[in-house]
Amino acid sequence: MMIKRVAMGLGAATVLGAAAGMASAAEAPAGYVKNVTGEVRVISAGEAARAAVGSPVAAGSTLKTAANSSVGISLRDNTLLSLGPNTEFTLSEFAFDPGEGKLSLASRLTRGTLDYVSGVIARLRPEAVSVATPSSTLAVRGTHFVVKVEGE
């Protein structure tokens, strides 16, 4: 009886440990830059930095590519995003914590070109994934697509 209670206490401790691990995972960046060609900037909390392989991409960040430039990004849920030249793209919202039921991935393509391969969030909760453009909202149901937004 006593042994069983100890075992249950241990179990509870393990669960708490796992929960703490998840909390820190939620603060991890949404993703990372995997490749850069030419000149690419990541604007995060008003600060612009030159993107390099391994640069973190947080929710709320905007990426801007110059002419003849491109960038590839991989998000934690395995969504793959890549931008062509003269592109402005914002990762508006990212939450990937399946244990807590927190899943969302909202982004915006203001101008330029985007290649989008959806990841786990789109598979678990398709309605939580969208890409906004100046003239529309794209609802993503687990898929691969490309989008182009003409600049004015």
Partner: peptide
């Protein structure tokens, strides 16, 4: 239209 973006897609 999308050659550059598609070429930058990560593995």
């Amino acid at each position: 239209d999308f050659g550059a973006a598609m070429a930058a897609r990560p593995e």
